[in-house]
Simulated scan of single mutants.
Amino acid sequence: MTGIAAPGTKVAVTGAAGFIGSHLVEALLGRGCEVVGIDRRSLRSQTLARLHLGDVLDHPRFSWVEGDLTDLNLNEVVDGCMYVFHLAAVPGVRSSWTGFEDYIASNVVATERLLRACREAGTPKLVFASSSSVYGMVDTLSAENDVAMPVSPYGVTKLAGEQICLAYAKRPDSRLSVTALRYFTVYGPRQRPDMAIARILAAALTGEQYTIFGDGTERREFTYVDDVVEATIAAAGVDVPAAVINIGGGSSVSMIDVIGLAREVTGNPVPLTAVPAQPGDVRATAANLSMARLLLGYQPRTDLRTGMTRHAGWMRGLTPHLLRTYAPPPMITGPKEATCSH
């Protein structure tokens, strides 16, 4: 996989202070790019945002823009950028049943504003971070040409974001090429504290209870963050006007098996509390990666055991206070409980 090749290329990353975004920023700087990071999270007041970007804030080729995509002058932000990587979004399946206005504003309205700015600025390429949540309830490998039927408000907004991207790319007067990547549950160092593997590992390392939703046979395709970043950069080089591509880890694993791996890589038990599955939860996710192989030359490199070992090692290096940030929250059985998504 190649993607961006020329050192000095100016790029923008929205959601730069987040889990995947911060890894992407580091990788782009490592390739010699000039990176503009955009996020509404405050580096002054939000501990995890500072943790994520702490190693790059003083980098001479990194510039920081703090603000909401629904308010910023995006024409100025993307001016001169060859590539825009749009990762900013409000995540979470279960939590999307409340506060839907923010999901619409951040995942749909902000995306359209960014696309309009890219079109007006003459930006050649936008890579959009979508989600496997657009597929909904499936019982086989999900392929990009399958009918998307999301079963949560979050999935609906990610599908809407995709469609807006494709609409802009297919305009008769468009010079903007768009590639939408459907990420299948991404994990690794800096994973959001509300996501499954972070919470399972935190439970093993702190002794707190992990709340498992369902009977543990639910399956997810987990994708290591380094593989996702490599695919995301490669997507910048896709030479088609509009494309949608799955990015997965190569296998679908039951939650019981994930918990077993957490015990192995930490050497500690995972205290469990079981509750019923919640609205928006799906039984399984699994990616057909044929399109990713064809257009990106993509092949996931990191198996789940290796990835979880690295993830656990990173968490062991956190201060007790920060590790407690990742400890599972008190059990919630209503729709506000967070989930593993994107």
Rank of each mutant, 00 (worst) to 15 (best):
Tyr326Met: 14
Glu66Ile: 05
Gly317Phe: 07
Met195Ile: 10
Met137His: 14
Pro91Lys: 09
Tyr103Asn: 05
Pro7Gly: 10
Leu318Ile: 09
Val147Gln: 10
Trp64Glu: 01
Tyr83Cys: 10
Lys336Trp: 13
Asp55Tyr: 09
Pro320Ala: 04
Pro328Phe: 06
Ile164Ser: 09
Arg220Cys: 09
Lys336Phe: 15
Ala234Val: 07
Met308Tyr: 04
Ile197Trp: 01
Arg175Val: 09
Leu294His: 11
Pro330Ile: 09
Ala160Asp: 02
Ala16Met: 08
Val84Arg: 00
Tyr298Thr: 03
Ile332Asn: 15
Ile212Tyr: 06
Ala235Arg: 03
Arg113Ile: 10
Pro7His: 05
Val265Ile: 04
Val275Arg: 12
Val244Trp: 00
Arg41Gly: 15
Val229Lys: 09
Pro320Gln: 08
Glu26Met: 09
Glu337Ala: 14
His311Trp: 07
Asp102Leu: 12
Val229Pro: 07
Arg94Thr: 10
Ala292Arg: 02
Ser63Asp: 04
Arg171Val: 04
Val270Ala: 00
Tyr168Pro: 13
Pro329Arg: 05
Gly155Pro: 01
Asp146Thr: 02
Thr223Ala: 14
Cys340Glu: 15
Asp173Tyr: 12
Leu272Trp: 00
Val275Pro: 00
Ile4Ala: 03
Ala180Phe: 04
Asn268Asp: 06
Val275Gly: 02
Ala284Phe: 12
Asp194Trp: 15
Pro320Asn: 04
Arg316His: 13
Gly161Arg: 01
Phe19Val: 11
Ala12Ile: 07
Gly250Met: 06
Ala204Pro: 02
Ala234Arg: 00
Leu74Ser: 00
Ile200Leu: 14
Glu337Trp: 15
Val225Trp: 05
Gly32Thr: 10
Ala16Val: 09
Val282Pro: 00
Ala167Arg: 15
Glu218Ile: 13
Gly92Val: 05
Val56Glu: 01
Ser42Pro: 08
Ser252Thr: 11
Tyr154Gly: 02
Ala89Lys: 01
